[in-house]
Design a protein around this nucleic acid. Structure first.
Length: 143
DNA sequence: GCCAACGTTGGC
DNA sequence: GCCAACGTTGGC
């Protein structure tokens, strides 16, 4: 069974458009230098789904991605502590879901996006996944 | 651009 | 192992 996640990126560093340009091959989610975020990636399996969130600018969930590799060394560093997975774009959110929308929804009050604001790779529960997808205009979310 | 939150580092 | 200093993240 798939698990669900949320990947944060500042769009001027790595945007949803750039992610989509990589197509089905995907791209490693590199640059993570935080243990909790890395541990979340270690827990990922191929086929897990995730939200792609624009932080700093946009502040919204703009798309859905899929984990497409096992955990491996982050090739942007020689430091063996830092590993990552590859992700590929699956589809756009028909209607991006903003942080404001998430905060305004009582069902999402325990979501990591609200409670662990600074964590850049977060777990998402199945209920949160379904709810955010619904808000984004996807009644039949990729599961 | 500011600043609160919070993770990491390093001296003791 | 504590905790102050420091650096980074990210919303506003």
């Amino acid at each position: 069974m798939a698990n669900y996640w949320l990947f944060k990126s500042e769009p001027f560093k790595w945007s949803w458009e750039m992610q989509k340009a990589k197509g089905d091959a995907g791209e490693q989610w590199d640059g993570i230098r935080n243990y909790q975020a890395r541990n979340n990636m270690r827990a990922m399996k191929i086929g897990d789904k995730g939200f792609f969130y624009h932080s700093n600018e946009g502040l919204e969930v703009v798309g859905i991605v899929e984990v497409c590799s096992e955990i491996h060394q982050d090739t942007t560093t020689d430091d063996e502590r830092w590993e990552c997975v590859d992700i590929r774009a699956v589809r756009d959110m028909p209607k991006p879901v903003t942080l404001k929308d998430v905060k305004a929804n009582p069902k999402l009050k325990d979501m990591s996006l609200v409670t662990s604001m600074r964590l850049s790779v977060q777990p998402v529960t199945k209920d949160e996944w379904i709810e955010v997808c619904r808000m984004g205009g996807l009644d039949n979310p990729p599961m």
